[in-house]
Amino acid sequence: MRKKRDNISSFRRAQSARSKWATPQQGYRRRRFPRRYLRAICVVAIISMLGWKFYVSQWPAWTTVRHMAAAPNCDFARMVGLAPSNRGQPGYYPRHDRNQDGVACEPFVRRFNSQRWR
């Protein structure tokens, strides 16, 4: 009987030592927020932000889409047909207006001096 008790107590000691020093992955399963819910929350947030942008926009929906597509640079603004644009019009972004005159993405005219290239 005494031997059996020693075996049980040594087993319990070993088990408690293992649980004390176990890493979180081994000792218990950490409850995490499921990634599928995180993805769904991100998608809903993006859709709601775009919806809010359309709701508060002063232009029709298609013009708002073109305005957002013109944001990266003047090439995109020309591609969607919003360049050149004046201040307050769709397609106008201050970063596209280099000389701060109120017209964004002005047409660029190259002037070559014929004497310079000789």
Results as ranks from 00 to 15, higher is better:
35 R>K: 14
54 F>E: 08
91 G>F: 02
33 F>P: 00
89 Q>W: 07
76 F>A: 04
5 R>E: 08
114 S>G: 00
13 R>I: 11
58 Q>P: 02
58 Q>S: 14
7 N>Q: 07
53 K>M: 15
5 R>H: 04
3 K>L: 07
83 A>P: 00
49 M>I: 09
67 H>R: 05
22 A>Q: 13
42 C>K: 15
65 V>A: 10
46 I>C: 14
95 R>C: 01
54 F>R: 03
88 G>W: 10
112 F>Y: 09
102 G>A: 10
97 D>L: 13
77 A>P: 01
61 A>V: 06
28 Y>S: 14
34 P>Y: 03
3 K>P: 02
110 R>I: 12
98 R>G: 06
77 A>W: 00
82 L>T: 02
6 D>K: 06
81 G>V: 06
41 I>T: 01
109 V>G: 03
35 R>W: 05
27 G>F: 04
104 A>P: 01
102 G>F: 05
47 I>F: 15
12 R>G: 00
114 S>F: 08
62 W>V: 04
66 R>P: 00
117 W>H: 06
106 E>R: 13
51 G>R: 14
48 S>Y: 14
43 V>M: 02
63 T>H: 03
16 S>W: 04
95 R>Q: 08
53 K>Q: 15
83 A>Q: 01
8 I>S: 10
43 V>G: 02
13 R>Y: 10
27 G>N: 13
12 R>I: 11
58 Q>E: 04
86 N>K: 11
30 R>L: 14
64 T>Q: 07
56 V>G: 07
108 F>K: 15
15 Q>V: 06
86 N>Q: 15
90 P>V: 00
49 M>S: 10
72 P>R: 14
7 N>P: 03
115 Q>K: 10
106 E>P: 07
27 G>Q: 08
31 R>C: 11
30 R>Y: 10
41 I>S: 03
19 S>N: 07
20 K>Y: 09
19 S>E: 10
113 N>K: 11
4 K>M: 10
6 D>Y: 08
55 Y>N: 12
95 R>H: 05
9 S>V: 11
68 M>Q: 12
85 S>K: 04
35 R>Q: 06
80 V>Q: 01
40 A>V: 01
44 V>I: 15
14 A>V: 09
60 P>G: 14
23 T>K: 15
38 L>T: 03
39 R>E: 06
80 V>W: 00
18 R>P: 00
69 A>M: 12
61 A>P: 04
17 A>S: 12
47 I>A: 13
58 Q>M: 06
70 A>H: 00
8 I>A: 14
3 K>H: 04
24 P>Q: 09
1 M>L: 03
47 I>C: 12
10 S>Y: 01
38 L>Y: 00
116 R>W: 05
11 F>S: 08
41 I>F: 11
36 R>D: 03
91 G>W: 01
56 V>Y: 13
34 P>A: 03
76 F>H: 02
66 R>Y: 01
102 G>C: 12
67 H>F: 04
31 R>A: 11
5 R>Y: 04
106 E>Y: 10
97 D>S: 10
104 A>C: 08
27 G>A: 15
21 W>M: 15
112 F>M: 09
101 D>I: 07
